[in-house]
Design a binder for these strands. Structure first.
Lengths: 340, 340
DNA sequence: CCGATTTGGCGAATCGGTTCGACAGACGAT
DNA sequence: ATCGTCTGTCGAACCGATTCGCCAAATCGG
């Protein structure tokens, strides 16, 4: 069931079938109808490989996700979902590829084997070898997150630095003087993970600017780590009355540790952060947070990538999003002030 | 940078390059070395589309996931991750495709456009039109889950019916007389969702067999629904001392509702279920459960699919897994017995 | 009524690989 | 010296689409 078979049954040439399908040249309505009928009968659809070979494009994009996949955070899952959705809208297929040392062959296949027209890269590091490889191969790509030197690169990101700064300001305005930052894991920071390092900077700057005392705590991406982290904070710095977090996966652990310590949120301890809306609302009480617009970001990434693919000479574009802080129920005035 | 270019620079014909790469015919060591050197210099990799066209296979499998993707349960995410991992091991790429009405064109592209060599289908219904479509198109596929009439189909599944039955038996052995089943949502059951309906059957059978009184509660896949569901159970049937759950996404909600009601697990209320190990361990206290071996299932699905692709005439195989119940801390003897 | 233009469709080349058959040269056996 | 075998390589066909150039018939204007 190839185009030749269709042509034979419709009594026309292969090229006519092709033109009838693509509309790139005029075909008489009668002929077109006859061809369409045969196609419907046989459930014919052009062979993707043949088309890709001739056209030089695959109508497929690669989505490179961080391993181990099983540990995908909810936010990352939202990216994947929204990229998938946006790609589907644009009639693009998505080839999902884990990155990392053991998957290097797969990555090279993707790039050098021209399996995809472009790539969306998630979880990039400040220095990221994959960016260099893509650049060298001349493969269009958009990163979610941005490297230390993103000039000439297309990217979409959330302004972690600014957002964490605004969270600190929010706490300062409410009278908190001693605050903690619960960051991502120490390994990720050492590995040059952008959002973590930018959160660090934003926190340090804002703490200095508003004259607060700040303590930074790295924390692995799971509930037990969150539990342990909050316990450490409470032990080591009992004067801390509020925390800013960029670690949504650890949130359930915070709840447990605070509860065990007999601290109520927000009466005794305020919590604010940057997180996916889902996690923020799941928290008890609902977390005041800057909701990362993951869905929008995924869609924008696909949009940018299609633009890039369509015009490889176009000037690089990027998008730095800074969503507003949604006021929920996890932040209150500092205890010390309430005693006045 | 195509095979012709490599051939020219190495001073051989295109076919020799091809044979040097594939090893399907003997090529002298010197020639092979010369070719390899040119390839390394240019980072050459065969164009996937051209190869797919000639070979008639794409070295790609499709993974069809349920929409809305954003609501993937942890277990489903584990399937995706393990399929990805296993495919990567087998040098296969994975095309991720959401299913559902709005994505029908993408699904047809996958199947009729021969974009993939085979398909893995997740979340299938007892009656599933996608199964029929795949069958009609002659596309090899493996389902995770099985339809009402799985004869002639390749599949991998967990024995929900048997597992739920064993959970009930476990509770009966410990003296519980009135037990609840917290199932998946009413919509999913109405829609013919296999695991939910099989859990229902297993529960009903076991309850009858051991002479217990059973109450079935459907529950949506999220924490608030779980909270509300447990509250209803406690209100409507205060005599219930234990529940079996197959709804891992609702678990955090159970915790909250039980806590609010002042019931301790397992002293006052026992909980047992079928869930991903991750969720079972995240629960407070760790949940006694039959851990769904999602990672194994994903790997097995890929394995079966490659066998099927390699020999389309092979007799269908399937795998019905029945993991043991891991005893953790959420089940105890019934209260009434403890008073003896 | 004749040349120019438009309409509708055809044939062949092409994309970049794989693979089959052929073939030249080296070598061993008789 | 001759024949057969084996080695290593080449040339050409092919996979299934798209697209360019071309041409026959129909239509139009003066």
């Amino acid at each position: 069931m190839n185009i030749g078979e269709i042509a034979k049954r419709a009594g026309v040439s292969r090229s006519t079938v092709s033109y009838a399908l693509s509309g790139k040249r005029h075909v008489s309505p009668e002929t077109k109808a006859r061809i369409q009928q045969v196609i419907d009968e046989l459930d014919y659809r052009p062979n993707a490989a043949a088309r890709a070979l001739k056209e030089g494009r695959t109508r497929t994009i690669g989505l490179v996700i961080p391993p181990p996949v099983r540990r995908l955070t909810y936010m990352q899952l939202e990216f994947v979902a929204s990229v998938l959705e946006a790609a589907s809208q644009a009639d693009l297929d998505v080839l999902l590829s884990p990155s990392g040392d053991t998957h290097a062959p797969a990555f090279s296949r993707l790039i050098d084997g021209r399996r995809v027209d472009g790539v969306i890269l998630m979880e990039i590091r400040l220095q990221d070898p994959r960016v260099d490889q893509l650049r060298k191969a001349g493969m269009p790509f958009v990163t979610i997150g941005h490297t230390a030197h993103p000039e000439g690169v297309w990217w979409v990101d959330v302004d972690y630095q600014g957002l964490v700064g605004r969270c600190v300001k929010h706490l300062a305005d409410l009278g908190h003087r001693d605050v903690a930052l619960i960051n991502r894991s120490a390994e990720m920071l050492a590995d040059g993970y952008g959002p973590g390092l930018r959160a660090q900077q934003g926190f340090a700057q804002a703490v200095a600017q508003y004259g607060l005392t700040g303590f930074e705590y790295p924390c692995a991406d799971d509930a037990p780590a969150g539990d342990a982290c909050v316990e450490r904070i409470l032990n080591e710095h009992p004067e801390v009355t509020a925390a800013v977090t960029v670690n949504e996966s650890a949130l359930p652990g915070f709840q447990r540790a605070l509860q065990r310590a007999g601290l109520r949120v927000p009466a005794d301890f305020s919590l604010i952060g940057v997180a996916a809306q889902h996690w923020a609302e799941e928290f008890q009480p609902p977390l005041t947070s800057a909701d990362v617009p993951a869905v929008q970001m995924g869609a924008e990434a696909v949009q940018l990538l299609t633009e890039y693919i369509a015009d490889r000479a176009a000037a690089p574009k990027h998008l730095l999003l800074s969503p507003p802080i949604s006021l929920r129920d996890s932040v209150s005035r500092a205890r010390t002030l309430e005693r006045d």
